[in-house]
Each structure stands twice: as structure tokens, then as C-alpha cells.
Nucleic acid binder design. Structure first.
Lengths: 225, 225
DNA sequence: AAGCCCGGTTTGTGATCACAGGATGGCGGC
DNA sequence: GCCGCCATCCTGTGATCACAAACCGGGCTT
């Protein structure tokens, strides 16, 4: 699956600047980012005509994009075929967390031997950006930069299928994460990130796995526990 | 609109007897099974109009189904937008195998405390069916019954997201598996299955994880090694 | 004989439309 | 005042069409 080099700084997910992409693909990425960055609230309804009007296209490409997201679990579809951002039960959330705890340490471990200084430095800078979003209480920005941090590391694992699975989990949790992080503090996040960076520098695989697992787990545990 | 009453595939004892499913969903499941059961060869091209004609529907629902499968990695799409069954490289196959080795033991372990006698007996019967397909050299039947065995066990894990991820991996490997199993023997498969059943009966989680991992790994290792 | 180009043909894409079913709000009855 | 019913709106679905680009063939040039 294609990686998306979308690094747009602005707060809102605005019109995609890629004109030669098929409309359904553009719309898919746009909606995907909205979900990933917590711009949708759990239960929020989406309509084909509404999105089509908003994006100035017909229903056809919107339908493809929305159904694709629904197939990935990023949107839920009612018995009558209506689409909405999913509302996750606690146990479902816990399942997603345990999947992350399974996949992400593995991805990190595979990235470890390939992680040179330049990458670690870039991760360090990214982590500072995460910090900034925290002090500014910018929840979408936090979700975005946090996932960017993880994805940048995992890209080095050279395991596209595993990364795609992981991103699909992020997608499923997106709207709920927004609601979650809006109320809770997330100061431990960058501490975990720093542990990750330290383990990377030290070439310490067990430590890396542990740090990643802690980082991934902590976010959702604080809801449940 | 006009409900097409019959487009069931010729050969199957279909497990989905739901007549009033939307066309795109029916088509999705049909194609999904074709891929899963190795009825498509790697590289085999699919066209929207061709499928639409074959299934007596318009291009619209076919497009949704095909694109959905492409999004899951079950079909590959060329730069110009053409669809075909994917041709997997050896390293990609190995990645898929290692993902299975990660997810499936976990699913089995979660199913273990919930696996009562009736389930184990049913699995035993299913394993006999697998045996039959082997002696008959029925490759699609083997793939189908083998996956049925695994899915039946994993369903007990009560982890729908993890199961969905696993099935998406099966889907990606489908066409390649067919080509693979067509040439190699697979007598060890039921031996591994018997080990799985024994571990289930004994309530032996480490043994179960090991047996599942062996079963999952063996199939693809024989290509690479 | 081999490479190239140029035509027709096939392909996916996106817009538009008719339709059916569910949701919604207001009206009337109790 | 509250509940139930009904008309209306709104939703997703699937068919059809116009269009542009990619593909594939034959025929030409070199």
C-alpha cells in the first residue's frame, strides 16, 4: 500500500494539493487523515452527498473512498447502510491496544539494525514537535505528530504489510483516541519516546521492544484502568 | 435495484446463504473466496466489465468490490489502474509468514481457555476433511478446509480485529499459495493440526503456540528454504 | 528482419439519474 | 401532555453514459 508523504503543517485537513491523483484516492487520503488525526468524533455521521458537495465531486468517488474506509474498520456502517465514525467499546479498544503491543515492538526491532544517526536525529526533532503540541493542548496535532514519529521509525523495518496492518489499527482507534486524549494528560508520551530513542542509540533490542510496548499501551490503559 | 436472484459460483457449497445482501457485498465475498481458495493465479488480470458481465450486474458494484480488495492487498493495481491477482516476491511472502507467526499463536492462545470439547471435536472433523482434500489432490479444497480449520479455532478468541488482520494476510497470500501448494506436498499439515488439537485437549498454551507457529511457518518455509 | 508509429479497441473514472428503504418530524387521537 | 401514525425527506444502491488514457495490433520505415 502506498505511503503518504503528507506533512502539511496546518491544523485542519484541507484540500489535498495533489491534482493528478484520482479523485477517489484523494478523498480516501483526506478522510483517512481526518480520522487518523482525530478530527472526527465517535458516532459522527457521514453522508455521501454531504461529502460530495463539500469536496465538489459526485457521489461516485466518495462512495468508493468511504466504503474502503468502512472495510478497514475506520468507519462503521449501520444496518441500513449509513456511515459514521465508529464508537468503540472498552474491550474492543483493549484488543486494538494489544494488537499494537504485538506488532509495533516487532516493527521497531526490525528497524533497529537499520536505524542510523540521521534517522534517530530526525526522530528526536519529531519528538520535540510532539512536545510542542502537548504544551499547546493541540489534540489533533498531537495525534498527527505522534503517529508520524512511530511511522517514521517503522518505515525502516522494511515490512510494508506489517506497517499497513498497524496503520489500519491506528485508523480504527482514531476517533476514540481524540475523545480520549482530549480529557487526559499525555505527558508520559514523550518520556516513552525518549526511552525509545535511547534504546535505538544503544542498539538495545529488548529495551526498545519494552519501550515501544509501554508507549503503545500507556495511552489506552489510562482509559480502562 | 432489480434483485438478481442467482450468481452463486458453480462449484461451492456456499457458507453464505443470504439472498438479500447488497450486490457489491455479494461480489466482494465471491471474489474474496476465489482469492482465498486459490482459484486465481498470480498475475491473472481482472476487468470491471468482464466481472460485471460474468455476474450480470453493472460495473458500479463490481468496482466497489474490486477496489476494496485492492485496498486490502488482495489484488494489485497497476500504475494505470488495472487490476490483477498479486505476484508476491519471496521476501514479501516471508513477511506475510512472519506476521502469521505473530498473530495466529496469539489468537490460538486466546481461544484456548474458551475451547470446550464440542469445538475440539468439530476441529477434529474438519481436519479429516483437510486430509481428504490432500489425498484427492484438491488444492482449492485444501486451502479452503485448512483456513476453515484455523478460522474456527480463532473465532473462539473473541478478538474480531485480530482475526480480521489475520484473514487479510491470508487473502494477500491466496493466489501465491495456490501456485505453491500445487507443486509441493503438504502431508505435514495435518500432523501439525493434530499437534494443535492435542495441545488444545491438554490445555497446554506454550505447546499450542508452538504448534500453531509451526503449522503456519511450514507452509511458506518450504518455498524459501 | 527489426524497430517504430499509429490506429482502433479496451480499460478505468467520474457524473447523473431513478429507485427503494429507513429516518424524521409533525399531526391527530387518546 | 404523551404516544403512535403517516407523509415527507434523505440516504445509499445500482445502471448508464461520456470521456481520456493505456494497451495492442498491423503496417510502415529503415
Amino acid at each position: 500500500m502506498a505511503v503518504q508523504p503528507n506533512l502539511t503543517p496546518p491544523v485542519t485537513a484541507s484540500a489535498a494539493p495533489e491534482p493528478q491523483l484520482p479523485a477517489h484516492e484523494r478523498i480516501y487520503r483526506l478522510l483517512r487523515n481526518r480520522i487518523l488525526w482525530g478530527l472526527l468524533s465517535p458516532g459522527e455521521p457521514l453522508t455521501l452527498r454531504g461529502l460530495a458537495a463539500e469536496l465538489s465531486v459526485s457521489m461516485t468517488p466518495v462512495r468508493e473512498a468511504v466504503r474502503r474506509l468502512a472495510a478497514e474498520g475506520a468507519l462503521s456502517v449501520s444496518a441500513s447502510g449509513r456511515f459514521s465514525a465508529p464508537e468503540l467499546s472498552a474491550e474492543r479498544l483493549e484488543e486494538l491496544a494489544s494488537i499494537r503491543a504485538l506488532l509495533e515492538p516487532e516493527l521497531a526491532a526490525r528497524a533497529l539494525p537499520r536505524a542510523h544517526f540521521a534517522l534517530i536525529d530526525r526522530l528526536d526533532i519529531m519528538n520535540h514537535r510532539v512536545d510542542e503540541t502537548i504544551v499547546k493542548d493541540d489534540v489533533p496535532g498531537y495525534l498527527r505528530t505522534n503517529l508520524e514519529f512511530h511511522r517514521t521509525l517503522y518505515l525502516r523495518a522494511q515490512a510494508p504489510a506489517m506497517l499497513a496492518l498497524t496503520e489500519s489499527i491506528w485508523l480504527q482507534a482514531g476517533p476514540t483516541m481524540r475523545a480520549l486524549y482530549a480529557t487526559k494528560r499525555r505527558s508520559e508520551a514523550t518520556a516513552n519516546h525518549r526511552k525509545i530513542l535511547a534504546a535505538l542509540r544503544a542498539g538495545d533490542e529488548p529495551g526498545l521492544r519494552l519501550a515501544v510496548r509501554a508507549d503503545v499501551t500507556q495511552g489506552l490503559r489510562m482509559l480502562i484502568g
